[in-house]
């Protein structure tokens, strides 16, 4: 199955903006994030300065925050899009 990852905000300059993964079998949000972290050469368990799983970054699956799903254990399905949303500037 195909999973797309899109990254917004300043961290995208460090870890990239888009990833496409072909996955066989089951995969969770956490596992995809770890993949992104390792492919982009980040410290293990980190995306830029953000520790995966800490509550200062938003993760959306097809636009829905994972807090409304099963958190990092949310299972992704074919053609799902995972968005990594850094706290924004602007206010």
């Amino acid at each position: 199955m195909r999973i797309r990852v899109r990254i917004f905000g300043e961290i995208s300059e460090e870890i990239g903006k888009n990833y496409d993964f072909e996955i066989h079998g089951k995969i969770t949000v956490l596992e995809v994030l770890e993949k992104v972290s390792s492919i982009s050469g980040q410290k293990r368990g980190y995306l830029g300065n953000y520790k995966i799983g800490e509550k200062d970054i938003g993760y959306l699956v097809n636009g829905k925050n994972i807090e409304f799903l099963d958190g990092l254990a949310t299972i992704l399905h074919d053609d799902n899009e995972l968005v990594i949303l850094q706290p924004t500037t602007g206010g």
Partner: peptide, 9 residues
Amino acid sequence: SWEISSGTR
């Protein structure tokens, strides 16, 4: 920004 990123929406 805090409200959404902190997962307490």
